[in-house]
Design a protein around this nucleic acid. Structure first.
Lengths: 167, 167
DNA sequence: TCATTATAGTTAGCTAGCTAACTAAGTCAA
DNA sequence: TTGACTTAGTTAGCTAGCTAACTATAATGA
């Protein structure tokens, strides 16, 4: 997402701001730091998942299924919730089916649709990964009290409001 | 980075917290929101760059070169600063060279190394993209005053401290 | 009722990352 | 001074995303 390691120093930003007067130095450095920390967080979480033989895409599919009352959903719905295309979801489900974590069942009422079912093995996988995952997130956020967490959420909501203006 | 669109509601998190007592609900939701906003931000910036025929990887190479006094560097140094492998940098430089934005020049003192030079066309490209890019970031962050920006940076620094505990 | 349109899922081929293995060139120590 | 190691860059082959095009089925409306 933001691979860049060598974030601009205030010095470098100031130089660029001379050449490009539109630059808002604190805005740029805030955005870059946000992307930097989020990327590192994401990489660290991926590393955690990969210890359990998973990757983010497949992982979220399992969680989305776990949220359902009957542990069942459809590829197109999963794709939308997971934020990937249906084509990508087909690939993710292929992998999960091969590992036995989900099962494809053909629906009777609409023969176009496939029902995706979280298998017992899938539940077991989640039960082994989730505690580890949650424990790591708890540790990572230990340094922030509830007040700071709330501040963060407010600030992120503000940035989120600004994103449409960016497009 | 975080494709997931359907972030867990407090309700869903509470249910998961019953099954997995290690869950720290506010920590999880803060982390997910952080990843969500950062991902949307990153996608929006990518869209801005692609309007100018660029992608993040190549873009950062141009900026890294622009930071240098003589607009020159080496693939391995660029790779390290950009946070990609040397193999990936080879590919990025191939593309930039084809577009005429950089030039490869062989060094005399160490015949293993190649010097990468930002061409005039490269400078022109930056001069056309940077103002647009900076203007967008300014607009996106308009809703945050300096105090909030500083708060954000402090909070991000705290999270950053927690990342090693996550691995 | 049957032609059109919409929907569900898949396939094929593209991309930018990655790792691992390679060549070529420089360094260093026995 | 030569054999082992290190460094710079590239190549080949992998991955998980993507888009576009496809098949099959369902819904709709003239």
């Amino acid at each position: 997402m933001l691979q860049l390691k060598d974030l601009p120093t205030p010095d470098v930003l100031a130089k660029f701001a001379i050449r490009y007067p539109d630059a808002d130095v604190t805005a740029v450095s805030s955005v870059l730091q946000l992307l930097r920390v989020a990327t590192d967080l994401s990489i660290a979480l991926d590393a955690c998942l990969s210890k359990h033989g998973l990757l983010q895409g497949r992982w979220w599919v399992l969680i989305l299924l776990m949220r359902e009352e009957n542990k069942t959903s459809q590829p197109s719905i999963l794709a939308e919730k997971a934020g990937v295309t249906r084509a990508t979801m087909t690939g993710l489900l292929d992998g999960l089916e091969q590992s036995g974590l989900i099962a494809r069942v053909f629906a009777k009422e609409d023969r176009r649709t496939v029902l995706i079912n979280l298998t017992d093995a899938g539940v077991e996988k989640l039960d082994s990964v989730m505690p580890d995952y949650y424990r790591r997130i708890r540790r990572c956020m230990q340094g922030l009290d509830e007040e700071k967490r709330q501040q963060l959420q407010q600030i992120l909501a503000l940035i989120n409001l600004g994103i449409p203006a960016l497009i």
